[in-house]
């Protein structure tokens, strides 16, 4: 059970990387980023449950990760809204304004 849960965390991480790199829509990229963070969270909770049973340090770190992920999702969506207002599209491959 321990190893299958670690495998689940690795699966969520790899699927999140694939979705983040290959998605055309910016909001889908944000959702895949949240998937990656949740994969890491599952990994930490599994280790904290099996190894660090006396003091649950893994769960405290997961709390920090959850808070930071919420903050980053809010800022990411604010940026996406601003881009949509200026350029009227949310496709990642149409934003080459900063290219040399």
């Amino acid at each position: 059970m321990f190893q299958y849960l670690l495998l689940l965390g690795a699966y969520l991480f790899c699927l999140g990387i694939y979705g983040l790199v290959t998605s055309r829509n910016m909001i889908r990229a944000l959702m895949c980023l949240e998937l990656m963070l949740n994969g890491v969270n599952i990994n930490m909770v599994v280790f904290s449950n099996n190894v660090d049973f006396v003091s649950l340090k893994g769960e405290v770190f997961v709390l920090f990760i959850i808070a930071i992920a919420a903050a980053e999702a809010a800022i990411g969506l604010a940026i996406i809204l601003n881009i949509y207002r200026n350029q009227d599209s949310v496709r990642i491959d149409q934003f080459d304004l900063l290219k040399w």
């Binding site: 909001i27 944000l30 949240e34 959850i66 809010a74 969506l77 996406i80 809204l81 949310v90």
Partner: peptide, 16 residues
């Protein structure tokens, strides 16, 4: 995650 982040993502989808 479900109550704040997911709702925020759905609002973002509906706006753009």
């Amino acid at each position: 995650y479900v109550g704040a982040v997911n709702v925020l993502i759905l609002f973002g989808i509906m706006l753009v």
